[in-house]
Nucleic acid binder design. Structure first.
Lengths: 234, 234
DNA sequence: TACTGAATTTGATCTGCATCAGGAAATAGT
DNA sequence: ACTATTTCCTGATGCAGATCAAATTCAGTA
């Protein structure tokens, strides 16, 4: 069945450099492209994967944003990641072939679906793909351990500043503005992720605005003094 | 040059099931074994890898324990991991072929050294090894994200209880007692890892002992009521 | 356009843990 | 065995951020 996005391929995807095709040659990209399936967009609040589901495929984000979270014994949600275009979702499921977390769209999002069985075969034949898998997983290990350091010894303001800087940097990598962007997650999501209450997030955003470091209008953030913000993050 | 541990091989290593050889057949293990180098033990406080060093090889812990940490802009150490026998060290370095953290021995430790170049070749030829690499890295992603959840929304007591439970479970996986074990790290190390002060760690250990949940004599921990402890961790 | 529930903001109060301080115990070095 | 140094414990105090409360704004829907 034809769909409106059938003309999208790894070869012409602007996120390729951040995603699995990184450093593959034209032939490699074409081979990877053949195993990837592209479907209709998913919408805000749609759940892409449930914790406990068996791992059928990885997902690459083409547009939009999502959050991943676990639900603990008390039924409390714990957000562990926000996904932007170019990110690959599902690496934490490889250990036991079972998804460990829920993933939900924060806004309308387009995804590429990469079947694990085919990926495994391709990885055997393509050293570049294998290395990129390692690179992406290693990067995820590194960034989550970095986050540990951020959450452990830092004040609420430092955490939030760090969050904004990291987000801005990620937008820049993706060819978007790192000075002006939209928070697709709620204040509650940010607080949950950073281990802070909603009220604290709101208060600190107001304080940063009062000091002229940023300008916040609802979901829209303007970074007025990037250097000040970076200092505040330490 | 012969050394005193030359008779150790993956084929007879008791940690093989937790380590890279997992699910390899005899032939596979033998091939992996040939690329692995085994050296003299390293001693307490010896530094195995420095942050910034280029990635030459991964290390597998055969005996002893180590800690990995980063040092932030202010020169403050942030512990991100404790390594036990069977653990593989260095996955966070694959992203940019450069170690991201320091790794230091907490006690005398024996290590296996796995050259990256050879590992890459072997992974091409051996699907089982490739899958185990994915499995181990995925597991590390999962556990560090789990830890986020633990540190974010939990009290000091819950964090420490969680730490002790997790450590006990890891000892059990390794064929050791999960009821009685030795903390090779200092209270300061535990506090650093969990985002708590030394004093808090000390106080809570005392409190848990007073309640009869555990018995602590210096570095030695006896878990008297595992179920209570597990409840306290939530 | 009006209605409705969700998200955000701001204020007031309270508490868990950091910090400061001092002493005891254990470990390492000679 | 003895000393120096690190590690550990316990008490007192203060504060950052949680929690409780309530008003306001926003977004989705009919």
């Amino acid at each position: 069945m034809a769909n409106m996005t059938s003309h999208i391929h790894c070869q012409n995807c602007s996120m390729a450099a951040l995603c699995l095709p990184y450093q593959l040659d034209q032939d490699g990209m074409a081979r990877l492209d053949t195993i990837i399936q592209r479907h209709k967009p998913i919408h805000k609040r749609d759940v892409l994967v449930n914790a406990g589901e068996s791992l059928k495929c990885l997902y690459a984000v083409r547009s939009g944003s999502l959050k991943s979270y676990t639900i603990d014994d008390n039924g409390v949600e714990q957000i562990i990641d926000f996904h932007l275009p170019g990110d690959v979702i599902g690496f934490d499921a490889l250990a036991n072939s079972q998804h460990r977390s829920y993933t939900q769209a924060l806004e309308t999002a387009m995804l590429c679906e990469i079947p694990m069985s085919s990926l495994d075969e391709l990885a055997e034949q393509m050293p570049g793909l294998r290395r990129q898998m390692w690179r992406l997983m290693s990067g995820e290990i590194y960034s989550s351990k970095q986050l540990l350091g951020t959450l452990n010894n830092r004040s609420a303001q430092q955490r939030l500043a760090h969050f904004l800087i990291t987000l801005a940097d990620r937008f820049k990598e993706r060819g978007l503005s790192n000075r002006s962007f939209r928070l697709t997650m709620t204040r509650a999501d940010i607080g949950n992720y950073l281990g802070l209450s909603v009220e604290t997030i709101s208060r600190i955003l107001s304080a940063l605005q009062a000091e002229g470091v940023i300008d916040v209008q609802n979901k829209l953030v303007n970074v007025l003094e990037p250097e000040r913000l970076r200092e505040l993050a330490q």
